[in-house]
């Protein structure tokens, strides 16, 4: 079941600069499905020569849905250090709201297998990714 977002594990961490840049905001957490939903804002600074959002910036958004999914599903004990990521770009992305869905496929002590999807407001699938990440204890995070 998807639970309403009130107090979450994210309250315990300062919002990192890249989350600010991407307009990151938590929409929902679904523990049964091991899934979280995040909103992003594609800004004019993200556009490529074709006038669409540059693919790498969509990868940055996908990175920021898969990592937080692992953080939530580890109850805030572990954060991800991404080892590799494969992204497929399915449709061009325009300025504005993009919605990411991050799923934890398997969470081990040291390695996590993650997947992410990015859709626009009309529900069109823009990009999808899979990722493997090294899991690091959050008590090793730099303070502040």
């Amino acid at each position: 079941m998807e639970s309403a977002v009130t107090e979450t594990i994210f309250d315990a961490f300062p919002k990192p600069p890249c989350a600010e840049l991407l307009g990151w905001r938590l929409i929902a957490i679904d523990r049964e499905k091991q899934q979280i939903r995040i909103g992003f804002t594609a800004r004019p600074e993200f556009l490529n020569p074709a006038g669409y959002v540059q693919g790498g910036l969509l990868a940055a958004m996908l990175d920021d849905v898969m990592g937080p999914a692992a953080l939530v599903m580890s109850e805030g004990r572990l954060f991800t250090s991404t080892l590799d990521m494969t992204v497929s770009f399915l449709a061009p992305a325009r300025l504005g709201l993009l919605i990411g869905e991050g799923t934890v496929i398997q969470l081990g002590k040291t390695i996590a297998y993650l997947q992410g999807e990015l859709r626009d407001e009309s529900g069109t699938l823009i990009a999808r990714a899979t990722s493997t990440a090294r899991m690091v204890a959050t008590d090793r995070l730099a303070a502040g």
Partner: peptide, 21 residues
């Protein structure tokens, strides 16, 4: 500085954006 993640290093996706370019 705006590209930094919770780890204190540059977020991987931002490196992907550089690789894309």
């Amino acid at each position: 500085q705006e590209f930094v993640s919770s780890s204190g290093f540059i977020q991987g996706g931002m490196l992907a954006a550089m690789l894309d370019d």
